[in-house]
């Protein structure tokens, strides 16, 4: 396998891995480091690559484990959840624009407050569109736990968004 072929293989998944690491670590350079480490590991095991039926699940699992390791190694981590996503909002009045950006930022913060499992499940389902089985494989947790965590995450997000007045009911 040449580096070119390798790049071709990882092209469809690398951004997914990055988004996941970013969701877990909330830090751009660290998330990039994780993806880089995962891809290097993958390259070192490239002879095995042909035997792996689901490269995406396999690498996502590696990304998840590595991100969690990194997270746990930083007890000193501050509570600062500064923006991870740059929002391009549709052009409207400047007031509305900042208001929209604030809302997006707020949602991002609410998700960042979720416990690690709920956050990863919600990310894979609601942002990446994974099925429960894909999440089960990617995170290595049983299916009923996938469902429970997703339900709790959505419930929490709903409650928080209601409390902050974004949702009415």
């Amino acid at each position: 396998m040449t580096t070119n072929e390798f790049q071709h293989t990882v092209a469809p998944i690398k951004d997914k891995l990055y988004r996941f690491a970013l969701r877990m670590l909330d830090n751009i350079p660290e998330a990039q480091d994780v993806v880089q480490e995962v891809l290097i590991k993958l390259w070192q095991q490239r002879e095995r690559l042909t035997q792996v039926t689901n490269v995406e699940a396999w690498t996502m699992r590696m990304t998840s484990n590595m991100s969690i390791d990194k997270m746990r190694n930083k007890h000193w981590r501050t509570e600062d959840v500064s923006g991870i996503v740059q929002f391009a909002t549709p052009a409207s009045s400047p007031d509305r624009l900042t208001e929209q950006a604030d809302t997006m930022q707020h949602i991002s913060n609410v998700i960042a407050q979720l416990p690690e499992k709920q956050r990863s499940v919600m990310h894979l389902r609601d942002i990446e569109g994974y099925s429960y089985q894909e999440i089960e494989e990617a995170l290595g947790i049983p299916l009923n736990q996938v469902k429970v965590n997703l339900f709790r995450a959505r419930k929490y997000v709903r409650t928080q968004l209601t409390a902050s007045g974004i949702l009415n009911s």
Binding site: V35, Q36, L39, M104, I166, L167
Partner: peptide, 28 residues
């Protein structure tokens, strides 16, 4: 409900920087 679902869609557009591939190839 629009902000929440818009957030999901926007978050999916986040990508690695364009020079990431070069960096990786050098590493490899």
């Amino acid at each position: 409900y629009q902000p929440l679902f818009q957030y999901f869609a926007t978050a999916k557009r986040e990508e690695l920087p364009s020079d990431f591939d070069e960096r990786i190839v050098i590493e490899l």
